[in-house]
Write a protein that binds this DNA or RNA. Structure first.
Length: 433
RNA sequence: GUGAUCAUCGUCUAACGGUUAAGACAGCGGUUUGUGGUACCGCUAAUUCGGGUUCGAUUCCCGGUGGUCACCCCA
């Protein structure tokens, strides 16, 4: 019989303890920062009815880029490729009873059937932060502030990343009302602008000319050259989207966030965005890559047949954050931690040690009993490697006398104490060190 | 999905169309039978899989698998 492979399934990761500590750090930081803004956690199953994604994005996506299968009852099931449709479903389901605005977050694992690459795997964890039921632009500003705060909390400096901001409404005003494009042409131009940085100037202009007339081409080219919001030409200055952005920028300024720019070329791929959109970029010279982003999507809940609920939010994947932190050497060296390791010196002392350890654990002290038959020196070494703060050896002397020697491993000090008093000893110590 | 590129002990590296595939780290054991990781010695452990060329393939060729890069897509 052929041996089974020890490799994990294609495109997913095993989290050995060393990686799990990092993963926990990444996710714990997300929880901490987002809760600090008053957001409440929700979650759902990773299984969803495949129709949920068909409704939103067309069947091609569902069939080719998701894990979709038929269950024993003949239902089409999809492993969630993202959280937003699930969230919209949950919001719609409780539409009448939720108090708005609702500030919700989640860190689901999501699955995409794609060819894996670095930073892009088939399973990933994605922080989702969303606010429902507020059409205020302060909601958009708050969302961007959370995104900013997360990276700062991870240890990033503002100059390490750049927040690009745009408003879909400006583009819609330009393409629909000023250039008078039909729906197809508008869609084509949008996709083209999204790809602008990937193709040459020449190529871009050629494709643009094939999509719309000379007047529109000139308008669009002029618009895309704009560097600052107040440089927008007369036609657009009065547009609703411009005023909205000015207000969001004012709020960001008042908070002290300076590493943002207005970027007229920023589209974000998603069709469901309706207003302010933003995307955070690594500002390092080598990889100017997109880290994550989000924006306003006011009509997504409509597909559940209920009253519209305004919404704004963003998503951020664990993998992208980790790669970003690695390039700036910001991944902390996290040690596992143990309050105490008890080393047994002979087999007859193990029961005594086990009993002692259990009493300490009942007092909330993290205690490991090393009952292996290794040399004592090796046991002390591995206690150190495991991040233990204190060490106690138990042999026949200790069992007979009830007195133990507590070693503080890093300070190399020893304290002799009765086993009865150990609970108090650690309770006092854990408060101080 | 398309194209490119890579694949050697658990990890990082070395070597070669030909005798037993080398080293370091890690792990385990010993020198040391109740107290600090050291030092010294030893042990464990690999050519991704399948096919082809060849007297002989880990090496060359083809294919699979997996990683990486670009495209596609990026929710």
């Amino acid at each position: 019989m052929q041996a089974l492979s020890t490799e994990s399934y294609k495109g997913v990761r095993d989290f050995y303890p060393d990686q799990m500590r990092i993963q926990n750090y990444l996710l714990d930081t997300m929880h901490r920062v987002v809760r600090r803004f008053g957001y409440m956690q929700y979650d759902a199953s990773l299984l969803e009815d495949a129709d949920l994604y068909r409704a939103k994005s067309g069947s091609e996506l569902v069939n080719e880029q998701t894990y979709t299968f038929t269950d024993r009852g003949g239902r089409e099931v999809t492993l969630r490729p993202e959280m937003t449709p699930t969230l919209a479903r949950m919001i719609a389901g409780q539409r009448k009873t939720l108090s708005m605005p609702a500030r919700w977050y989640s860190i689901p694992n999501c699955f995409r059937y794609e060819k894996p690459q670095r930073g892009r795997l088939r399973e990933f964890w994605q922080l989702n932060v969303d606010m429902f039921g507020s059409e205020s632009l302060y909601a958009d500003a708050e969302t961007i502030t959370i995104a900013y705060s997360l990276l700062i909390e991870y240890g990033a400096k503002p100059e390490m990343f750049l927040i690009k901001i745009n408003n879909r409404k400006i583009m819609r005003e330009l393409l629909q009302n000023i250039c008078n494009l039909d729906v197809d042409a508008e869609y084509g131009v949008s996709k083209l602008i999204d790809r602008k940085h990937k193709i040459s100037e020449q190529e871009f202009n050629n494709q643009l000319k094939s999509l719309c007339n000379d007047f529109a081409v000139e308008q669009i080219q002029n618009f895309l050259k704009v560097q600052k919001i107040d440089e927008l030409n007369e036609n657009l200055r009065g547009a609703l989207g411009v005023d909205e952005l000015i207000q969001v920028f004012k709020t960001l300024d008042s908070i002290g966030i300076t590493n943002y720019i207005f970027d007229p070329t920023l589209m974000r791929g998603l069709d469901y965005y309706t207003g302010v959109v933003f995307e955070v970029f690594d500002s390092g010279n080598e990889n100017n890559r997109s880290l994550f982003g989000g924006g306003r999507y006011d009509y997504l809940v409509d597909m559940f047949g209920c009253e519209s609920v305004t919404a704004t939010g963003f998503g951020m994947s664990d993998i992208v954050v980790q790669k970003f932190l690695e390039t700036y050497d910001l991944v902390p060296d996290i040690q596992s931690s143990l309050d105490l390791v008890i080393c047994t010196l002979d087999v007859d002392s193990i029961d005594f040690a086990m009993n002692m350890a259990q009493n300490l654990r009942n007092n909330g002290i993290t205690t490991l009993v090393d009952f292996s038959e290794k040399k004592l020196g090796a046991k002390i070494g591995s206690a150190n490697d495991n991040g233990a703060r204190y060490l106690i050896c138990i042999g026949s002397n200790e069992v007979a006398s009830g007195m133990v020697t507590v070693k503080h491993l890093s300070m190399r000090t020893e304290t002799e104490i009765s086993t009865d008093l150990l609970g108090d000893f650690f309770e006092k110590r854990s408060l101080s060190t």
